[in-house]
């Protein structure tokens, strides 16, 4: 049951694309892909969204729009994604299993796709106890693996999870997933990725990587298993903003390991600057964080099996441009215009 079913729909399969998304084309053309992250506001203030779009557009091939991340209610991922598409920045909507059952998921996937959203990242979702509604009841009707399979069957078999046919075709979306290479049990993590491949994921973004040695070990196992040929692997990176932020990531976020030498580098950047000159220290930390991130991207580019990077500039979208430019990844490729499969009844 782990084999991916072939698409039945002849009309739709005339297109070589699963989704026709920019990200799919960039990856298919063999470019080193760059994705970013856009966190919607805790309000309906679309100016904030547009400002962030301005900071990312042109520097990434698509932007993840988080889905009530850390269990905090925010402007909806799909609602925000529609604005991104209108503004010419490709949306990768995140969809968690925490807030929706299979009915809502399928309904929302179709709703997103009719608004030109062509990428979805399937996630379990942060537990609600970390957010601002800790008394909420979580859903978890399906898990992230099952969500991947559900989207894939909607797209490739034109069928709802319940088995009924989706008349006129299912949503055509590129299916993303997340991987946390350093979460326990570490030795099993490549197998978990293999399972996500079997479920039907097209690309994967990893948790933020700082420990290159460990990541190389992980990637070696992934490559030995041949997974890199079946799924596009985007390594998660992020600029360290300050020594406390680096220490927080290392100690408080499962799956993130920030080696001491990275923390030390950021720390050292502030040395020699007057302790009272907070502004100058902040600027120095940030500059070093961006520099370190660029170096890490360059190192990641050399690792076999990595197809791109996913930049998580948490509440610091402005860092994306200097990182992408600094890593020599600007300008972003513009794939040749190829007919995009459109949802809805085939012609």
């Amino acid at each position: 049951m782990s084999a991916q079913p072939e698409r039945k729909d002849d009309a739709a399969s005339e297109s070589q694309w699963k989704s026709g998304s920019n990200l799919e084309r960039v990856l298919a053309d063999g470019h080193f892909a760059v994705t970013g992250e856009l966190g919607p506001p805790k309000s309906m203030n679309t100016d904030i969204v547009r400002k962030k779009i301005g900071q990312l557009k042109g520097f990434v091939d698509g932007a993840n729009i988080t889905d009530n991340q850390t269990g905090i209610v925010r402007l909806s991922s799909i609602g925000t994604g529609i604005i991104l598409e209108q503004e010419g920045l490709e949306a990768i909507i995140q969809m968690t299993c925490r807030d929706r059952n299979r009915l809502a998921m399928q309904s929302d996937l179709m709703g997103a796709n009719i608004h030109d959203i062509k990428n979805v990242l399937c996630l379990s979702g942060d537990h609600q106890s970390f957010g601002n509604h800790p008394g909420a009841k979580n859903v978890h009707d399906v898990d992230s693996m099952q969500l991947i399979r559900m989207v894939q069957e909607m797209r490739d078999l034109n069928k709802f999870q319940g088995g009924e046919e989706i008349k006129g075709g299912g949503p055509r979306m590129l299916i993303g997933t997340a991987a946390s290479p350093f979460s326990s049990p570490v030795e099993m993590r490549p197998f978990r990725l293999a399972k996500k491949v079997a479920a039907g994921a097209d690309f994967v973004q990893t948790q933020m990587i700082f420990d290159m040695k460990l990541f190389k070990e992980y990637m070696k196992r992934v490559v030995d298993m041949g997974l890199h040929e079946k799924i596009k692997i985007l390594a998660g990176v992020g600029p360290l903003k300050s020594p406390p932020m680096a220490r927080f990531l290392n100690s408080d976020v499962p799956g993130i390991i920030v080696p001491e030498e990275c923390i030390q580098r950021i720390d050292d950047a502030g040395k020699g600057i007057d302790a009272d000159d907070k502004e100058a220290r902040t600027a120095a930390y940030r500059a070093e964080g961006i520099k370190l991130c660029i170096e890490q991207i360059q190192e990641i580019q050399e690792i076999e099996g990595v197809a791109g990077i996913h930049i998580m500039a948490i509440l610091w979208e402005a860092a994306v441009e200097p990182i992408v430019r600094g890593a020599g990844l600007y300008p972003r490729p513009v794939p040749a215009d190829t007919p995009t499969p459109t949802p809805g009844p085939a012609a």
């Binding site: 299993c97 925490r98 379990s124 979702g125 942060d126 537990h127 106890s129 979580n138 978890h140 898990d143 992230s144 693996m145 099952q146 997340a178 991987a179 946390s180 979460s183 326990s184 049990p185 099993m188 197998f191 978990r192 399972k195 479920a199 948790q207 499962p254 799956g255």
Partner: peptide, 29 residues
């Protein structure tokens, strides 16, 4: 599992413990 996962652990498993309550083992681990 606080997320009732059926196909393996999420990323919130660290040192074999669950991030939702770090005194409780990650059952998938």
């Amino acid at each position: 599992c606080p997320k009732q996962l059926m196909n393996g652990p999420c990323g919130g498993s660290e040192g074999g413990m669950c991030e939702v309550d770090t005194s409780i083992p990650c059952i998938w681990s």
